[in-house]
Design a protein around this nucleic acid. Structure first.
Length: 324
DNA sequence: AAGGAAGCCAACCGCCTTTGG
DNA sequence: GCCAAAGGCGGTTGGCTTCCT
């Protein structure tokens, strides 16, 4: 059970003069405030959060109301400790998405970005740190070196034609590297043991499901593909959509219409923005998974980012679904 | 039992993006 | 195009709880 919300807000909260006579409360929420917000939200839903604060009779700013609702009052919150499966998914998504907590949260129903962020910064990070205690003396403090943006894409300073290592391999903390690498070496088994449905497809792909729901998949070289953010897609629907071409299909089931950008910075910026919201393609598409050979015929190591491939795919985003 | 350290987590802060006038 | 307001997000803080000595 979650700890009861801390009481006695009057002792902790301060009042903020918002430039006028109306003073805005800050600090912990009282049960009365929660009741007001909850009942208002149940009756009216939220439109403009500033209006919510005003109309619900709360001396709070809209932002504060929004945060309280999202992180605590929302009825669909799961609460309670993270399960092993959730933990695995967090590690997995973090290796792909970096600190984009909201995007990770969007893939874990009932969990908030704040919750996941706290969980990561306390539990998981600590565990990784402990597991690295015997590693390289050069290891820097993982807490300060947390990879800010694992999926920011190839360091944008790199030459566009240069392959760059996948970002998490640049993380100076060996603990994080080894944990993620271990996970990537055999991502399927733990998932299978945890009760997820694994369906093998031709080309070595593995579809991960929970019950009948499609969660995501691993590609032929074990590269994890970020599952698209969909309201709900069943495995059956996914199969229908993937019959012709898995990568194309992933674009088909997503909404990439807003993707635009004619330079690398914009593309990656858009990738960051659309990567989950419009989901669908997964980073796996841009990794060298074409027989381990890049377009120059050079051997390409798994785990290296193929910028050229990425650019090719990106160029087709705005107007068409994926073209392979 | 007391006090300090560490852990945990709700909430704030500041920045960026989006939206509407 | 400009500006202001609102929304959204990740980083950080502060205080309560739990653990340890």
């Amino acid at each position: 059970m979650r700890k009861p919300d801390r009481m006695n807000p009057s002792a902790n909260s301060s009042l903020k003069n918002n430039g006028g006579d109306n003073k805005l409360r800050k600090g912990l929420w009282s049960p009365e405030e929660d009741d007001k917000l909850m009942s208002y939200m149940m009756n009216n839903g939220h439109g403009c959060w500033s209006d919510v604060a005003r109309n619900a009779g709360l001396q709070r700013c809209g932002k504060s109301c929004r945060l309280r609702w999202i992180n605590y009052l929302r009825p669909d919150l799961k609460r309670g400790a993270f399960s092993l499966q959730e933990e695995e998914l967090i590690i997995h998504f973090h290796s792909l998405l970096g600190n984009r907590w909201s995007q990770i949260a969007a893939r874990l129903p009932g969990r908030t970005d704040n919750e996941i962020k706290n969980f990561w910064n306390s539990t998981i990070k600590k565990r990784m740190k402990n597991s690295s205690s015997d590693s390289s003396p050069n290891a820097s403090d993982s807490s300060s070196s947390d990879h800010k943006d694992a999926n920011t894409g190839p360091g944008l300073n790199n030459s566009p034609h240069e392959k760059v290592p996948i970002p998490f391999l640049l993380d100076p903390a060996p603990a994080i590297q080894s944990l993620i690498l271990d996970y990537m070496m055999d991502p399927i088994s733990p998932l299978e043991q945890s009760g997820y449905t694994i369906q093998s497809l031709p080309q070595g792909r593995e579809i991960i499901g929970e019950g009948t729901q499609y969660l995501g998949e691993y590609g032929e070289f074990g590269e994890a593909l970020v599952p698209p953010l969909l309201e709900n897609i069943s495995l059956e629907e996914h199969h229908l959509k993937t019959e012709s071409n898995p990568y194309e299909s992933k674009a088909n089931i997503s909404n990439l219409n807003t993707f635009s950008g004619d330079n690398i910075d914009n593309n990656f910026d858009n990738l960051r923005k659309t990567g989950s919201t419009y989901g669908g393609f997964g980073v796996g598409n841009f990794w060298n998974n074409n027989n381990n050979t890049n377009h120059n015929g050079e051997d390409a190591k798994i785990g290296e980012w193929d910028l050229e491939e990425f650019m090719r795919d990106v160029s087709s985003f705005p107007f068409h679904d994926f073209q392979c």
